[in-house]
């Protein structure tokens, strides 16, 4: 479903190469995890896939269900079914969370030639999902992420994901800063979306999230490349021994 081939990326304004040939395929229905040292390029990969400015792809390709992601505007990628849960969710003062959500849902539906959701149906949908994620109604009324705690922001990302129901979900360190209970809620939120048709790319530093979201495949990224790929046991190995052995082996 998501196919990344030999992806090379540098910064637009600087001669700094960040991704140095990433190859990765996520099949429908599968959960892939990416682990790797700080600064290895995990967030960069997620940004490049979702179309953030500031990066230049110098080589390689990325497709979603065969469609060339890199040729699309960020909003087109979203409408095509790509979703990124941000490592650092953005605060938008003055835009209500509900307005934001409804605008996003309707924009995607419009792009796909579907009808807009009615206000009443939308409210019902949001309330139900918010309840599952333990997000109170008050938070929905506030401006997007403004004054939210770190954990609240992450849960808000998952709420958006649940409501937008994307085909391909990328989660960038959604577990960072979450307490144990919140991590469980987030994992439940992700698991609820695992319907055998969606793909997931879960970026994390910790085994703990992977205890709840059982990955099918684990990748290790280092210095802009996937240096090793394995099963869930690879995450356990990282947890036990750190990256040193894996990196030494990769070189």
């Amino acid at each position: 479903m998501l196919e990344i081939k030999n992806l090379h990326v540098k910064l637009e304004d600087e001669d700094k190469v960040i991704l140095k040939g990433v190859d990765l395929t996520v099949e429908a229905g599968k959960v892939h995890a990416i682990m790797g040292p700080n600064g290895s390029g995990k967030s960069t990969l997620s940004y490049v896939l979702s179309g953030r400015d500031g990066y230049r792809v110098t080589e390689g390709s990325a497709t979603l269900d065969g469609a060339d992601l890199l040729a699309m505007a960020p909003e087109e990628r979203a409408a095509a079914g790509l979703f990124l849960a941000f490592q650092y969710p953005v605060e938008i003062p003055g835009v209500g969370n509900m307005t934001f959500l409804r605008t996003a849902v309707n924009a995607q539906r419009k792009a796909r030639g579907e009808e807009e959701v009615s206000a009443a149906d939308f409210l019902k949908l949001v309330r139900a999902q918010a309840k599952m994620l333990n997000i109170d109604a008050d938070m929905l009324k506030r401006p997007v992420n403004v004054g939210f705690s770190g954990g609240e922001k992450k849960r808000n990302e998952i709420l958006q994901m649940a409501i937008l129901a994307p085909r391909m979900c990328i989660l960038d360190e959604t577990d960072s800063g979450l307490d144990v209970d919140a991590m469980r809620l987030v994992a439940d939120g992700v698991n609820a979306l695992r319907d055998g048709k969606r793909g997931f790319l879960v970026i994390t530093h910790y085994q703990r999230l992977l205890d709840h979201i059982k990955p099918d495949v684990v990748h290790i990224m280092a210095d802009g490349r996937i240096v090793r790929t394995g099963g869930p046991e690879l995450a356990l190995e990282v947890e036990r021994n750190g990256y040193a052995d894996i990196l030494a082996e990769a070189i």
Binding site: R52, E75, F83, I92, G94, V95, T103, A111
Partner: peptide, 25 residues
Amino acid sequence: ALFYLRSRGVPLAEAQSLLVLSFLA
């Protein structure tokens, strides 16, 4: 903020309008 909105599927022009309105709020 503009990228965040677009990454959720809000088209550029609409995202800009939302941010302008939020500035005026």
